[in-house]
Amino acid sequence: MLDKICGLARSAGNTIMKFYNSEKFINISYKSDKTPITNVDHEANSIIKKGLSLITPNIPILSEEELYNFKICQHWNHYWLVDPLDGTKEFLKKNGEFTVNISLIKNGIPVLGVIYAPFFDILYCSLNKHAWKEKKPGYKERIYVSKSKVPLLITSRSHPDKELKDYLRARKNYRIKKMGSSLKFCLIAEGIAHIYPRFGNTHIWDTAAGHSIVVAAGGKVKTWTDENLNYSLSSRRSFVNTGFCASTS
């Protein structure tokens, strides 16, 4: 099934790139939180939903681009979690830092994760305790987190916050890199970056696929109270995450 999901992410990514590389009309609107959404998000979402419905017709799908009755979703123990275009701001800026995110949640845990970066044509995926980087379809290379005496901290390009400034001020020995979308998780999983601290709001579709890949590569994703970031809808009041830190240890 993992290969089918990887293929599905690539298919959605190819559609995204057709808009990115052409003069096709991009219709931009804004959600209640003032984040942008485009017709490209909806096109990618349609491809993924249709594909998942064929692969696993009995597993419900929760996507960023749909509206849901949260009380109904709370009864889902197993579900797909989708962000069809993570990093819409970066897509519109044309800096390439956007991804397609698909993950499978079982009993609050992301057990499968796929992140495809169509601009770079690189895919990251995980299943249980194994994580891979795929530069060509079907050619997977195992990836692992790594440690460093001078860790590379990777932070959001578009979402600065005061807590992050305070966190950095308290640290002494580090390098820093800013990046958009869930690629931040991927750089930790393949051993390039080492810490991704996040204080501002994210949603479960922003983090689940990256969470799965980081943990499968040997890292961890914990809240600031040292608890596992949980995707069990029955124990939540909304789709919003608390702050967290993804790291190599």
Rank of each mutant, 00 (worst) to 15 (best):
C6H: 05
N241K: 03
G219V: 11
G7T: 05
K149H: 11
K93G: 05
F239R: 07
M17G: 03
N228K: 12
P137L: 11
L168P: 09
W80F: 15
L112Q: 09
T15L: 14
F98Q: 06
E97M: 14
L229C: 08
F185T: 10
N128R: 15
A131W: 01
I26L: 06
W132A: 04
L104D: 03
T155C: 06
Y20Q: 07
F70I: 14
G51L: 10
D33T: 08
Y68I: 00
P118L: 09
G113Q: 01
N58C: 11
N230T: 12
I26G: 09
D86Y: 00
F120W: 14
L153R: 07
L127W: 11
V150M: 12
N14R: 13
H211G: 10
E163P: 09
N39L: 02
K133A: 08
F19V: 11
Y124K: 08
D226R: 06
K140W: 07
D161Q: 00
V111S: 10
Y68G: 02
G87A: 08
I16Y: 02
E190D: 12
K34N: 10
I143C: 07
I5S: 01
G191T: 15
E227K: 15
Y79I: 06
T88C: 08
L85G: 00
F91N: 00
G87D: 03
S212I: 03
L67I: 15
Y144T: 11
S22Y: 04
L153H: 11
Y30R: 02
I102N: 00
N14E: 15
S103T: 10
D86E: 05
S235E: 14
S156F: 02
F70D: 03
H78W: 04
L164P: 04
I143N: 02
P197S: 04
T35N: 12
C186W: 08
N107D: 13
S232W: 04
I28Q: 04
F19W: 09
L112Y: 06
E65Y: 05
M17K: 07
D33W: 04
V82E: 01
S234R: 13
R236H: 10
S234W: 03
F244C: 08
K129R: 14
T99A: 05
C6N: 09
S148A: 11
L67Y: 08
I47M: 06
S181R: 12
I213C: 09
I154T: 00
R175I: 15
